[in-house]
Write a protein that binds this DNA or RNA. Sequence first.
DNA 1: CATGTTCATGGAAACGATTCCATCATGCTT
DNA 2: AAGCATGATGGAATCGTTTCCATGAACATG
Lengths: 332, 332
Amino acid sequence: MNMRRTTIKDVAEAAGVGVATVSRVLSGGSASPETRERVLNVAAQLDYRPSALGRNLRQRRSGGIGLLLPDITDTFYGRLADGVLTCARSAGEPVILGATGDDPEREAELIGTLLEQGVDRVIAVPSGDGDGWAPTLRAGLTTVFAHRLSPGHADIPTVLADDRAGIRTAVDYLTGLGHRRIAYLGGPGQEQRLSFFRLALGPLVDEELIVVARGSRDSAYAAAAGLFQHRPDLTAVLAGGNLLGEAAVLAARELDLRIPRDLSLIMFDDVPWAELCAPPLTVIAQPAQDIGYRAAELVLRGGTRRPRGVLLPTELIVRGSCAARGTSRSPR
Amino acid sequence: MNMRRTTIKDVAEAAGVGVATVSRVLSGGSASPETRERVLNVAAQLDYRPSALGRNLRQRRSGGIGLLLPDITDTFYGRLADGVLTCARSAGEPVILGATGDDPEREAELIGTLLEQGVDRVIAVPSGDGDGWAPTLRAGLTTVFAHRLSPGHADIPTVLADDRAGIRTAVDYLTGLGHRRIAYLGGPGQEQRLSFFRLALGPLVDEELIVVARGSRDSAYAAAAGLFQHRPDLTAVLAGGNLLGEAAVLAARELDLRIPRDLSLIMFDDVPWAELCAPPLTVIAQPAQDIGYRAAELVLRGGTRRPRGVLLPTELIVRGSCAARGTSRSPR
DNA sequence: CATGTTCATGGAAACGATTCCATCATGCTT
DNA sequence: AAGCATGATGGAATCGTTTCCATGAACATG
């Protein structure tokens, strides 16, 4: 009944060699062809699988990649996670997932758990201002940031969508349609995007039209509704994420603002339901999956080379949520 | 520069006790009050965190929970994962995530990885007919199934939404509206639901109106479009998942079938966009998060008691995607 | 006072891999 | 033929923890 796992010792014994030899053969070290074959045969025979436990202890690091996301419920992060998973699977590495809720404290706690587990490679969408990362990095974690960069850590490789171009294109599109009072509805950790928005808008920028919500759905809805009520003169809004976009659509509907007649909307991230919406939403598509995949590649490549980071293209997908601000309509 | 981690030995030395005592104190064993305090102080002082690596090896199991989902991109599973994460976090346990893609082979491969890591607790949405699980269970994994039960493994604790009641309610609602030719659009692993559907429909059941797609979006769309084209006489459809629902809406639009005028639709799973859809979708809401949370509770409780499983309530949320099949409309 | 019981305690043996190092055989050079 | 480089090999140390076991003290019971 006592089904002990077969260990390297069993294999060594059965093959008539030392454990060292088995270890070498299995991890690609040098060995004579005959020995190699014999060991491999025996290993296969016994269905031997090296225990990660022993290896990890010896090497003082567990394999595996830590993945820290604000919210796994958000489709965008779901797709990002999927990219990471895909890459990790092809490398045979397990992925440990944690949800930070965009809370630096929780993030720090999760990092603690990871360190305890001996995880030494982390992919994260950093929350907060990134102060919490300093001790982590000193602890020797190979870190890659995804989707957001952290203000204080320009040295950490980061995989980003080209928000600058995305926003520029979107804003140009809107101004081209005649819009002048364009609002930005943002979420946590979007300082970067915000500055791009200001840049793209130039002299048209109106600080009152820039609203930042916290991470939750409620907060997003409140922000959108507040914005629309407070400034009924705005004609277009750029939502910095699918949660924000959802909130904008909901709030607009509630306030009886028709999209796109009364309000043009562009949303970040091309989620499947953007097409199902009425009207279908014009979006800035981000390669969420790719972001995850590339981040995983970077973190797996490890400390060897340290690429500066990766910038992936975004794409404006025009559907039906933006209308021209013609001269025909009277300015109230 | 050589910042060695502080080990239990360091703590023992600094506190003037043996390592065994430190270990006992830290894991709640017996020790004299003075010693206990001294050790705790020193440990705090040195910022000692026990390495999971050593412990895992000794105990021949890594903590941690394996979570195997068909597709982390699907909001439903995202929410389920969130539930698991929430519960696991409160227990301080890491969660290792794997995406099976509803492919038993990939599932088996992932289980292999988990075993290699010494993971001994798994929450899974089982794919396939569950044959692959027999060896796993023999290996002593504490397993909990979520969302789907596995045909061959009635003995494994399983957390399910009450599909039977959900389907019954939905079907009753549709028949009450006068629908007679009701289709079912299912995904992989829904044998259970299918049988409930047949049961609920009774003599009205029409096997030709039951279509099962594979997991992908394309496959779902093809199934929906095929169904609608092949049987234009159907008046209502029950979509067994949000991907299927999405496909149904898309296919209907493509074929110029108006919802709900030409086609009534009820979708399993209340995703946020159901409300944004035009018209808003009537859905059978499932407590995805709870399913995950409860599954995590069960798997953490472990082998002690073996509860039969958990059945969580579903709810029919009526929005605007179903219309009465009045006598006014001519039967083509 | 002798004996048994109950504790707290520390040394040492696991756990299962990797890897350093010494050993030995072999083949090549001079 | 002696010396040397090369390569295969196995023993043993190591990683950081938990846990078994022996020890000794303190205390209670007869």
